[in-house]
């Protein structure tokens, strides 16, 4: 097998997609998870259900709606096309938006449970020591919830690596722009390039295993004990 001629573009693209998606998910998911953990609002159930939808929906359903929304006539794609000249469907940006929605529960749920586990007690204590709400979140809740963050980052990243249906529908299959590993594998198998499919599949398998193993090991050894 000659690695020098092997096209690694989909690999880098996939890593980039997963990385950007996870960063975005932390920004979006943290406030949502925080709200869910501390609110007594009656809308809480609705928000929880919406966040969990990608867990049960077929990726094609999500992909279909996103394709419409991000397309040149969509409510999101339309204005963007008017402003920039091109819609969001079949672009890397569109892919990031789709992945963010698709992997949302994998980031929000671990953060939600970690914030619930940390609870209100350390926060009240911090407030009584002159820490503002943001200060208490950053200096108390976040370090105490570190395990939740690690789990969220890893699950969000790994789940984005593994998505297929949504990226195929929203991103198309444009080499260098939207062609990620999972689609590349599909293509290779279609044209009987089993050797290449092996490299990509085996790589993904090994990578996923190593990442998950690392996380579970770190989590068990983290020196934080909430008592």
């Amino acid at each position: 097998m000659d690695f020098s001629s092997f096209d690694f573009t989909p690999v880098w693209l996939t890593l980039k997609l997963a990385g950007v998606t996870v960063l975005l998910l932390l920004v979006v998911g943290t406030p949502v998870a925080w709200w869910l953990a501390h609110t007594r609002s009656r809308f809480r159930g609705i928000v929880e259900a919406v966040v969990a939808l990608p867990l049960v929906l077929p990726p094609t359903v999500l992909g279909f709606y996103l394709l419409i929304a991000l397309g040149p006539n969509g409510w999101l794609g339309g204005p963007v096309k008017a402003a920039t000249g091109s819609a969001l469907s079949f672009t890397f940006t569109g892919l990031v938006i789709a992945s963010t929605l698709y992997s949302l529960p994998f980031v929000v749920q671990p953060l939600h449970s970690t914030f619930e586990a940390v609870g209100k007690v350390p926060l009240e204590t911090a407030w009584s020591l002159r820490a503002s709400r943001l200060d208490a979140f950053l200096t108390i809740a976040s370090p105490l919830g570190l395990r939740g963050y690690i789990t969220a980052i890893v699950l969000g990243f790994a789940h984005t690596l593994g998505e297929f249906g949504v990226v195929l529908m929203v991103g198309g299959n444009i080499p260098g722009k939207t062609k990620v590993i999972s689609i590349d594998i599909y293509d290779r198998v279609e044209v009987m390039e089993y050797a290449e499919a092996h490299i990509l599949s085996g790589g993904l398998l090994l990578f996923s295993f190593v990442v998950l193993l690392t996380v579970y090991t770190i989590n068990r050894r983290l020196p934080i004990h909430i008592s």
């Binding site: 204590t125 009584s128 108390i140």
Partner: peptide, 14 residues
């Protein structure tokens, strides 16, 4: 400008 001492020490474990 208050200090609060609770039933348990509530020290920050980290």
């Amino acid at each position: 400008s208050i200090g609060v001492v609770f039933q348990e020490p509530r020290l920050f474990p980290h």
